[in-house]
Amino acid sequence: MFEQVVIASFIIVGAAFACIGLGLSWLLSPTKPTEGKGLTYECGVKPIGKPWIRFRPGYFVFAILYIIFDIKIIFLFPWAIATSYVITGWFIIIEMTIFATILLAGLAYAWKEGVLSWH
C-alpha cells in the first residue's frame, strides 16, 4: 500500500512543483505582446502555409510490427522469472525457442517483402 501512496504523491507533488515553477516564471517575466512575437519560428520569415498538414509518416508498418513485438515481450518477463528456477527444466526453454522462431520468421518475412525499408 505504501508504494502506491509514494507513486501518487510523486505525481501530485511533482505537478505542484511544475506549477510553482511555471507560476514563478509567469510572475517574474514581463508581458509586452507584439504581433511578431506570436509568429512561429520559420527561419526569420513569415510562416508559409499550414503546419498541421496530413502526410505519410513512412513508418506505418513498423508501428504495427512494434505492437506485436511489444505484446510478445510481456510474455517474456514471466518466462524469464520462471527460467531462473532450475526445476522448470529444459521444457520452457524449448517452448520459448519455438515461440521466438515463429516471431523471427515473421520478421524475416516482413523483411523479405520490403516493408522494413523506409518508403
Binding site: 503546419p51 509518416p57 513508418y59 512494434y66 511489444d70 515481450i73
Partner: peptide
Amino acid sequence: HNKYSLIGAIRSIAATITYEIPLLLSVI
C-alpha cells in the same frame, strides 16, 4: 503549430518504436 516542431514530434515516435523493443529485451 510549427512545421519543424511537428517533424521533430513525428520523429520522436519513430525513434520510440525503434528502441523500445531492444531496450526491454536487453533486460531479460
